[in-house]
Amino acid sequence: MSLLDETVSVPRRTMTLFFMIDTSGSMAGSKIGAVNDAVVNVLPMLDEISVTNPDAEIKVAALEFSTGCNWLYNEPKLANEFVWQDVQANGLTSLGAACEELENKLSRSKGFMQSASGSFAPAIILLSDGAPTDNYEAGLAKLKANNWFKSAIKVAIAIGDDADKEVLAKFTGTNEAVFTVHNIDALKQIIRVVAVTSSQIGSKSSTAGDTTKQDQVISEVQNAVDNIDGAEVATKVDGSSYSDDWD
């Protein structure tokens, strides 16, 4: 038997993609339906990115929050093992509690971040259509002190105009990482784009130079958003008032 036949796969790190999903009462109906549909459809795409990637494998974790919060599985799962159970919407918007719960799990010893050959920083996608109903500031402050969170790729999807974009921007650290959608189709598309882009970039060795992974995700998602009807970047630069003066 040749030495070549003994070759094993290179060790891979793990990149965990977190979905934090608002399942408060206002999400009921088509919004939550679209979220369920979009996540189910994006899982196979994440699996494909994972199996062909020599840098890292991708795992998925999902936390739904309403009056309280709840993990869909009590550990991160490979995308092809993650069987999505449709989430239901009712109750309040306990974002603060969800932040605290995420903070608990962003830990190697007591949380989700155990991996023999190490991890890349996670990617976290927060979806919400409203404003927090609890004292989110305390929970968010704790989360922001967490080193995993600090180096994570963070993107928020604001569903409709009632979403509190300021709160979402505090979560992501920049309003450029907050993307707003105005219809169900746009919601589905943006979930796919954000999940795929942040997984692709988050699960690869970073590029040489100064652009951060978070910046790369933002710029790729922004490009995609330009082509999704009903989706927009939170801070779209409005140049219309200058057009006359500067022609």
Binding site: V10, P11, R13, M113, G118, F120, A121, N147, S151
Partner: peptide
Amino acid sequence: YANHPFEGAKVVACPCMTEA
């Protein structure tokens, strides 16, 4: 050699490979 020349014990010990 089918492994990376700079990834050994020191690199494996790093729990989170941040950009830094």
